[in-house]
C-alpha cells in the first residue's frame, strides 16, 4: 500500500497536466491544481480504474485534495 500516494499523484499529474512538484498532499484539485468540476469527476474515475475500487458519488464529493484521495483509497481499495 506504500505506493498508493505515488500512484495517486501520477494520475493527478497526467490528468491535470500539472507539474509534479505542485501535487502535494494538501493540494486542492480545484483551488491549487486548476481542475474544474468535470476534471474532478474524471479524476475519480481514473482512481477507480487504477485501484479497482468503486467510489460512490457521496464519497467522491468529499475528495477535494490529494490527501483525501489517498486516504479514501487506503481505507477502501484492495490493491
Amino acid at each position: 500500500m506504500s505506493d498508493v500516494a505515488e500512484r495517486v499523484k501520477k494520475i493527478v499529474v497526467d490528468h491535470l497536466g500539472v507539474e509534479e512538484g505542485k501535487v502535494t498532499e494538501n493540494a486542492s484539485f480545484i483551488d491549487d491544481l486548476g481542475a474544474d468540476s468535470l476534471d474532478t469527476v474524471e479524476l475519480v474515475m481514473a482512481f477507480e480504474e487504477e485501484f479497482g475500487c468503486e467510489i460512490p458519488d457521496d464519497a467522491a464529493e468529499k475528495i477535494l485534495t490529494v490527501k483525501d484521495a489517498i486516504d479514501f483509497i487506503k481505507a477502501n481499495a484492495a490493491a
Binding site: L38, V41, E42, M45, E48, E49, E54
Partner: peptide, 10 residues
C-alpha cells in the same frame, strides 16, 4: 454507464 467520461458530451 459509470465509465462514461464527463467530457464525452462536450
Amino acid at each position: 454507464p459509470r465509465r462514461i467520461s464527463p467530457f464525452f458530451i462536450p
